[in-house]
Design a protein around this nucleic acid. Sequence first.
DNA 1: TAACTTTTGTTTAAATTTAGACAGAAGTAT
DNA 2: ATACTTCTGTCTAAATTTAAACAAAAGTTA
Lengths: 192, 192
Amino acid sequence: MKYDIAKKTTRGAKRTLDAFSGTMFELLSAKPFEGISVNELCEKSNYPRATFYNYFDDKYDLLNYCWYRIGKQIRLDEYAELDPGKSLYIFFDRAYDFASVSLATIQKILKFNSTDSFLLNHFRGYLGTQIRKIFQDCPDQDGSPIPYEIIADHYSNTVLLILGWIFLKGNRCSKAQAHEYLKYLLGTFQKN
Amino acid sequence: MKYDIAKKTTRGAKRTLDAFSGTMFELLSAKPFEGISVNELCEKSNYPRATFYNYFDDKYDLLNYCWYRIGKQIRLDEYAELDPGKSLYIFFDRAYDFASVSLATIQKILKFNSTDSFLLNHFRGYLGTQIRKIFQDCPDQDGSPIPYEIIADHYSNTVLLILGWIFLKGNRCSKAQAHEYLKYLLGTFQKN
DNA sequence: TAACTTTTGTTTAAATTTAGACAGAAGTAT
DNA sequence: ATACTTCTGTCTAAATTTAAACAAAAGTTA
């Protein structure tokens, strides 16, 4: 990414970032990621190519920013202060709510970018990394027989599994029921 | 208007004009025009005040541009080549279609800007002028007992009357029925 | 293969936007 | 009437965007 997200973004930068990522989501609802060109993104966003390259290295880089934008919406960065034992469920709930609201868009995107496509794997990768970060910040639990890092990975995998089952594979189920699934799959490790 | 619409607009200008006019329509759907400030327009549009004043003199000027934008959507400028006798009905149909599609927005705006408010009068004024222009371009009809300019004004008034009756006063009626109204009110003058 | 089109990523100087400050007007509250 | 807040319209120098051109890569067609 050529633009530094860390430093506070100016209004102009916000507009540009929003426009490009918004257009990317729009286009993903209409065609596979492979078929989207930087030219098209610029055309639809009403920005010249030079501006695109002021912000992003290429369309993959923009894709990353799209995931980052979703991450902000589910407040991926606000877990430091949460009870580690509960953060799993809190994260799950936020993701569940977001996916519920965005279901129409998700389904359109899936129509052109199937579950096992590059696009979804890319998203999985991003989200997995972020989830792992949440749990890695938690301290080692006393008396745990295996490294906490492994548990963090396992949490991440399991949460993604359930979310994918519900929203990508289309097996709608209530939040409460989903919690049951999570408890069942993670029961052996969880204290709470 | 500080920006010259006549010269072909750059992409950046198009973005800015679209953003501000779009925000204006949004705000009009939520509050009366009097209560909208330039600050608010800039805030919602994500542009600094300086940019607003790069393009517009004030919020009234922006309002004018909003009407201009609607004018483009109903192709107010494409009447030179049309049959003068029919242009009345062609214009009416375009306006009717546009209003039908935009009905939800119109109703929201009316909720905060009642039929006899400054806003609606301003719009009436703009549209009336444009309609008059269409008919003024038509040549004097042979043997007409009164100046064509008066007839143009009368056409403009009558079309606006019917449109207002249907879409502002809320008396929905079919396009065909509306044509009957028009024919009845203008029958004495019309040849076709 | 060869001709052709599209895409990519970079580069430039010119145009536009930008944050912030400014004084004066207008509105609100006490 | 006074203090307080918000709004307006203008002004800057610094930052960003812009159109256009470019060579090289990739994709398409015949």
